[in-house]
């Protein structure tokens, strides 16, 4: 079976901090990592490979040359080959344009099943996976937590806020995986060294142009545009209430819980 996994290299946003004095983003020194949900996608692919004999995992990333290290890591985790989809023409793509480009690349490589992460921690959009599926005209299930192979289909557990759906989905299809998909295994030193020898291939606009409309990629092919961005205002000073009766205290806390939509 031909398993394709899409990964994105992202800044580790859990390490992002604001300069306490200037209130601006400290960008320097932030590490780049494989997006956690995408890593869960790789784990899912490895699991699928274990279940279906003769499977091969191809990992794909779209991004600048620095994204190679993310692909190397995926190879060290056990993927068999990697593709970097990279071209100046792809720059400035929003989710729709990105999914259009990736769909073309995936079509070119060929697949039985595509696995992406649910969402990336830098943008948190959760859009690219379902959009790829739509471009390729295949069904998808997002927020997948577990799965098993069932003949010509997968049986997956799809997570919602309040429930799970157990869904049977036929190949070819696309899944978006959630972090916490099984245990993320550590790399091994030997795996990293071994990955150095695996092949990394490159796809650029020229390679994909038969499958792409130039008007649908890059800045030009992106319906959404960023007007401006700014750092969030700092957390305002909290409120301190004293001398309340028990009921008032409970009301004040309940008002907060409702405001925060915790209730």
């Amino acid at each position: 079976m031909k398993i394709l996994v899409c990964v994105k290299q992202v800044p580790d946003t859990s390490e992002v901090t604001l300069d306490p004095i200037t209130n601006t983003l400290i960008r320097k020194g932030i590490k780049s990592i494989i997006n956690p949900d995408d890593k869960a996608g790789i784990e899912a692919a490895l699991k699928l490979k274990d279940q279906v004999e003769g499977s091969q995992i191809t990992v794909i990333s779209m991004g600048p040359k620095q994204a190679e290290i993310a692909l190397r890591e995926a190879l060290a985790m056990g993927c068999d080959e990697g593709y970097l989809v990279s071209d100046r023409k792809f720059g400035g793509s929003d989710t729709l344009a990105t999914s259009t480009i990736l769909a073309a690349a995936l079509k070119k490589i060929g697949f039985d099943v595509i696995i992406t992460g649910r969402q990336a921690i830098d943008g948190d959009t959760a859009q690219v996976g379902p959009q790829i599926a739509e471009h390729l005209k295949i069904p998808h299930v997002s927020y997948v937590e577990e799965f098993e192979v069932d003949g010509d289909a997968l049986i997956v557990l799809r997570q919602f806020e309040d429930r799970y759906h157990k869904i049977r989905i036929k190949f070819p299809c696309l899944l978006t995986a959630i972090s916490g998909f099984g245990e993320i295994k550590y790399l091994t030193v030997a795996g990293v060294i071994e990955a150095e020898k695996k092949e990394l291939k490159y796809l650029n606009y020229e390679d994909l142009k038969d499958l792409l409309d130039e008007g649908c990629i890059g800045l030009k092919g992106s319906p959404t545009k960023v007007v401006k961005s700014y750092t969030k205002e700092q957390k305002s000073q909290g409120t301190l209430l004293k001398g309340l009766t028990t009921n008032e205290a409970v009301d004040a806390i309940m008002a907060r819980l409702k405001e925060g939509h915790i209730l």
Binding site: Y186, T188, V189
Partner: peptide, 26 residues
Amino acid sequence: EKMQKCGFFGIPYSKEYGGAGADTMA
């Protein structure tokens, strides 16, 4: 044991003998 499994105890030794096949820098 976890560190052994990740290969921390055989970094600069060749694969031929079961090491990670890396070098002193690694």
